[in-house]
Simulated assay, not measured.
Amino acid sequence: MTELPTLRESLEQHGLMAKKAFGQHFLLDLNITRKIVRLGGPFDGDTVIEVGPGPGGLTRALLESEAAHVIAVEKDSRFLELLGELNEVFGDRFEVIEGDALKVDEAQLLADRKLSPQAHIVSNLPYNVGTPLLIKWLTGPWRPKSLTLMFQLEVALRVVAPVGDDDYGRLSVISQILCDASKIMDLPARAFTPPPRVDSAVVRLIPKADRPAPAVIKNLEKVTAAAFGQRRKMLRSSLKSLGGEVLLDKAAIDATLRAEQVGPDGFLRLATALS
């Protein structure tokens, strides 16, 4: 790593700045990125997919780890040359791909490179696509081995919120049914360049072995969207279009409850009953 210029020097050499349109806020402190990698690991001998590497602060920390391969997916073509310089030090262990992570087929990406279908996701997620990407990785056909993701703090709190909490909602239910989720690190806005208007946090998610069937997961998305879309209403009203009291009776859920009063297991019963 000593063969490389510092992250700030790299940005200056390439004349690069964060783009607001892409929700970019860079982590240039390698002590922080190394801590994120340490808390998210171990990655011994595994492949790690990183989304939105920007100047490569988190990328460098991943390449210092025991990960066998690091694949970075970057939408902003301005950073491809800068990131490509990492190949001079790390060779075939590192690859950068220009693309939109929302459209990437991770299973095909790994198969094309003859890598194990089990890979980790690690990312300082762009603020404007963090939630859609999480939903894609949670509910899609490809299952990551683990996810270590940085979100703006309010999103991170929604992922890990318990039932009854003010932050408890659709994202909490889906995340906690499909994964064991925990907040592992807080980061103030001043840690980033440029600093965002909000603080951030890192969440680690480990997919559960007993994954519901794909049809149940699709129903889970429908049920949570309807219930939390009208969270002030009783479930017999908010779920009326999906069966209302008949559905609630099948799932053994009190029809007078509101969405924030029903735990993840209750929503899983509703999604199963809808099937």
Rank of each mutant, 00 (worst) to 15 (best):
K145V: 00
P196I: 01
G140D: 13
L133E: 04
F151W: 07
V159N: 07
P144H: 06
S200H: 07
P188D: 15
I177E: 01
R158M: 09
G164I: 08
V198A: 07
V155W: 02
I135R: 14
Y127S: 06
A181K: 07
A189D: 01
R190L: 12
M185I: 06
V155P: 01
T131Q: 03
S182R: 15
K145I: 02
V159P: 01
V159F: 02
G140S: 11
F192W: 09
S172D: 06
M185T: 03
P144A: 07
T131I: 08
I177Q: 06
Y127N: 08
D167H: 14
Y168M: 02
F151A: 00
K183E: 12
M150Q: 10
A201P: 03
L187R: 00
C179L: 12
I177S: 00
S172T: 09
V160F: 08
G169W: 06
T139V: 11
D180N: 13
S146F: 07
L133H: 07
V160L: 11
T193H: 15
S175V: 05
V198G: 04
M150D: 03
R143T: 15
A191Y: 00
E154C: 06
V159M: 10
D165I: 03
G169C: 09
D165A: 15
P196K: 11
P132D: 13
G164H: 10
V160D: 07
L147A: 12
S175P: 07
W142T: 09
A201F: 06
V173F: 13
L178T: 05
S175D: 05
T131N: 00
W137N: 00
M150L: 13
D186E: 15
T193N: 08
D180W: 10
D166S: 14
A191M: 06
L157I: 01
Q176E: 10
I177R: 05
P188T: 11
L125C: 08
D167E: 15
R158E: 04
Y168N: 02
A189E: 06
P141E: 15
T148V: 15
P195E: 08
D186W: 08
V129A: 06
V173Y: 00
R143W: 12
I174M: 09
R170Q: 13
S146Y: 13
P144I: 03
D186M: 13
D186A: 14
V155A: 04
D166Y: 13
G140Q: 10
M150T: 07
L187S: 09
